[in-house]
Amino acid sequence: MSGKPEIWFYHLERSTLDQVLPTLLEKTLERGWRALIKSAHAHRLDDVDERLWSFHDESFLPHGRADQPHADRQPVLLSESGENLNGAQALFIVDDAELGVTEGFERCFIIFDGRDEPALQHARGRWKTLKEQGANLAYWRQTDEGRWEKAA
Protein backbone atom coordinates (compact mmCIF):
# COMPACT_ATOMS: atom_id res chain seq x y z
CA MET A 1 0.00 0.00 0.00
CA SER A 2 1.32 3.42 -0.92
CA GLY A 3 1.01 6.49 1.25
CA LYS A 4 -1.37 8.14 -1.22
CA PRO A 5 -4.66 6.46 -2.02
CA GLU A 6 -6.53 6.73 -5.28
CA ILE A 7 -9.21 9.39 -4.94
CA TRP A 8 -12.20 8.77 -7.17
CA PHE A 9 -14.88 11.40 -7.71
CA TYR A 10 -18.35 10.03 -8.51
CA HIS A 11 -20.53 12.65 -10.19
CA LEU A 12 -24.18 11.66 -9.68
CA GLU A 13 -26.40 12.85 -12.49
CA ARG A 14 -28.97 10.11 -13.13
CA SER A 15 -28.87 8.12 -9.91
CA THR A 16 -29.12 9.03 -6.25
CA LEU A 17 -26.69 8.28 -3.46
CA ASP A 18 -29.16 5.66 -2.18
CA GLN A 19 -28.95 3.88 -5.54
CA VAL A 20 -25.18 4.10 -6.05
CA LEU A 21 -23.64 3.69 -2.59
CA PRO A 22 -24.86 0.13 -1.84
CA THR A 23 -23.48 -1.14 -5.17
CA LEU A 24 -20.10 0.49 -4.55
CA LEU A 25 -20.05 -1.00 -1.06
CA GLU A 26 -20.85 -4.48 -2.40
CA LYS A 27 -17.91 -4.22 -4.81
CA THR A 28 -15.68 -3.01 -1.98
CA LEU A 29 -16.59 -5.99 0.22
CA GLU A 30 -16.15 -8.39 -2.73
CA ARG A 31 -12.54 -7.15 -2.91
CA GLY A 32 -12.06 -8.20 0.69
CA TRP A 33 -11.87 -4.58 1.83
CA ARG A 34 -13.66 -2.84 4.66
CA ALA A 35 -15.39 0.50 4.15
CA LEU A 36 -15.82 3.70 6.12
CA ILE A 37 -18.64 6.07 5.18
CA LYS A 38 -18.16 9.62 6.41
CA SER A 39 -20.86 12.28 6.51
CA ALA A 40 -20.94 15.48 8.50
CA HIS A 41 -24.68 14.98 9.06
CA ALA A 42 -26.11 12.42 11.48
CA HIS A 43 -29.44 12.42 9.59
CA ARG A 44 -27.63 11.33 6.40
CA LEU A 45 -25.99 8.47 8.30
CA ASP A 46 -29.44 7.49 9.60
CA ASP A 47 -30.71 7.37 6.00
CA VAL A 48 -27.68 5.34 4.82
CA ASP A 49 -28.05 2.99 7.79
CA GLU A 50 -31.68 2.30 6.91
CA ARG A 51 -30.89 1.91 3.19
CA LEU A 52 -28.13 -0.65 3.78
CA TRP A 53 -30.60 -2.86 5.65
CA SER A 54 -33.23 -2.71 2.94
CA PHE A 55 -31.77 -2.04 -0.51
CA HIS A 56 -32.19 -5.71 -1.54
CA ASP A 57 -35.26 -7.69 -0.52
CA GLU A 58 -33.21 -10.87 -0.06
CA SER A 59 -30.08 -9.47 1.61
CA PHE A 60 -28.45 -6.56 3.43
CA LEU A 61 -25.01 -5.06 3.72
CA PRO A 62 -23.42 -5.80 7.11
CA HIS A 63 -22.63 -2.50 8.79
CA GLY A 64 -22.63 -0.53 12.00
CA ARG A 65 -22.22 2.92 13.47
CA ALA A 66 -18.96 4.31 14.82
CA ASP A 67 -20.72 5.41 18.02
CA GLN A 68 -22.01 1.89 18.76
CA PRO A 69 -20.24 -1.10 20.37
CA HIS A 70 -17.97 -3.27 18.21
CA ALA A 71 -17.27 -0.56 15.62
CA ASP A 72 -13.87 -2.16 15.01
CA ARG A 73 -15.54 -5.38 13.80
CA GLN A 74 -17.84 -3.80 11.20
CA PRO A 75 -17.17 -4.47 7.49
CA VAL A 76 -18.90 -1.14 6.73
CA LEU A 77 -18.76 1.62 9.32
CA LEU A 78 -20.82 4.82 9.32
CA SER A 79 -19.13 7.78 10.97
CA GLU A 80 -19.36 11.53 11.47
CA SER A 81 -15.73 11.83 12.62
CA GLY A 82 -14.16 9.69 9.92
CA GLU A 83 -11.90 7.94 12.41
CA ASN A 84 -10.92 4.62 10.81
CA LEU A 85 -12.01 2.41 13.71
CA ASN A 86 -12.61 -0.65 11.52
CA GLY A 87 -9.32 -0.54 9.58
CA ALA A 88 -11.12 0.25 6.32
CA GLN A 89 -9.28 0.29 3.01
CA ALA A 90 -12.02 2.34 1.32
CA LEU A 91 -13.29 5.73 2.48
CA PHE A 92 -16.60 7.07 1.16
CA ILE A 93 -17.19 10.81 1.51
CA VAL A 94 -20.79 12.02 1.19
CA ASP A 95 -22.51 15.39 1.69
CA ASP A 96 -19.34 17.47 1.30
CA ALA A 97 -17.80 15.96 4.45
CA GLU A 98 -14.15 16.83 4.83
CA LEU A 99 -11.77 14.28 3.36
CA GLY A 100 -9.40 14.46 6.34
CA VAL A 101 -6.44 12.12 6.68
CA THR A 102 -6.27 9.62 3.82
CA GLU A 103 -3.16 7.68 4.82
CA GLY A 104 -3.99 4.04 5.36
CA PHE A 105 -6.75 3.96 2.75
CA GLU A 106 -6.33 2.31 -0.64
CA ARG A 107 -9.11 4.29 -2.26
CA CYS A 108 -11.30 7.25 -1.36
CA PHE A 109 -14.65 7.88 -3.04
CA ILE A 110 -16.03 11.41 -3.11
CA ILE A 111 -19.66 11.10 -4.13
CA PHE A 112 -21.55 14.27 -5.03
CA ASP A 113 -24.83 15.21 -6.66
CA GLY A 114 -24.16 17.07 -9.90
CA ARG A 115 -27.76 18.37 -9.88
CA ASP A 116 -26.98 20.33 -6.69
CA GLU A 117 -25.03 23.45 -7.73
CA PRO A 118 -23.35 24.08 -4.33
CA ALA A 119 -22.27 20.40 -4.17
CA LEU A 120 -20.94 20.59 -7.73
CA GLN A 121 -18.94 23.75 -6.98
CA HIS A 122 -17.56 22.22 -3.78
CA ALA A 123 -16.45 19.11 -5.69
CA ARG A 124 -14.78 21.23 -8.38
CA GLY A 125 -12.87 23.17 -5.73
CA ARG A 126 -11.88 19.96 -3.97
CA TRP A 127 -10.64 18.43 -7.27
CA LYS A 128 -8.53 21.53 -8.01
CA THR A 129 -6.98 21.54 -4.53
CA LEU A 130 -6.22 17.81 -4.59
CA LYS A 131 -4.76 18.02 -8.10
CA GLU A 132 -2.45 20.84 -6.97
CA GLN A 133 -1.35 18.59 -4.07
CA GLY A 134 -0.42 15.83 -6.52
CA ALA A 135 -3.20 13.43 -5.51
CA ASN A 136 -3.90 10.32 -7.62
CA LEU A 137 -7.31 11.35 -8.99
CA ALA A 138 -9.98 9.81 -11.20
CA TYR A 139 -13.33 11.25 -12.24
CA TRP A 140 -16.31 9.00 -12.99
CA ARG A 141 -19.59 10.09 -14.50
CA GLN A 142 -22.70 8.30 -15.65
CA THR A 143 -23.51 7.67 -19.29
CA ASP A 144 -27.01 8.20 -20.64
CA GLU A 145 -27.56 4.48 -20.02
CA GLY A 146 -26.60 4.88 -16.36
CA ARG A 147 -23.24 3.06 -16.60
CA TRP A 148 -20.11 4.60 -15.10
CA GLU A 149 -17.27 5.75 -17.33
CA LYS A 150 -13.95 7.21 -16.36
CA ALA A 151 -13.87 10.78 -17.69
CA ALA A 152 -10.55 11.96 -16.20
Results as ranks from 00 to 15, higher is better:
10 Y>W: 11
15 S>I: 00
45 L>M: 09
126 R>H: 07
20 V>C: 05
120 L>T: 13
21 L>W: 02
60 F>E: 00
133 Q>E: 14
11 H>E: 09
58 E>I: 02
66 A>D: 15
60 F>V: 05
4 K>M: 14
123 A>N: 01
69 P>R: 06
44 R>C: 05
86 N>F: 05
69 P>K: 10
115 R>C: 12
44 R>V: 10
60 F>C: 04
71 A>K: 03
91 L>V: 03
143 T>Q: 13
34 R>D: 02
43 H>R: 12
117 E>Q: 14
143 T>I: 13
17 L>M: 14
13 E>C: 04
101 V>K: 14
38 K>P: 05
25 L>D: 01
14 R>T: 09
142 Q>C: 13
151 A>Q: 13
151 A>W: 04
73 R>P: 00
141 R>T: 08
59 S>T: 14
82 G>F: 03
69 P>L: 08
25 L>M: 06
79 S>Y: 03
41 H>T: 07
53 W>Y: 11
50 E>K: 14
75 P>S: 05
112 F>L: 07
100 G>P: 05
57 D>K: 07
96 D>P: 02
135 A>I: 06
76 V>G: 02
45 L>S: 05
51 R>T: 14
39 S>K: 04
19 Q>T: 15
74 Q>E: 15
18 D>M: 09
120 L>S: 11
115 R>A: 14
119 A>F: 09
45 L>H: 05
131 K>L: 12
9 F>M: 07
121 Q>S: 14
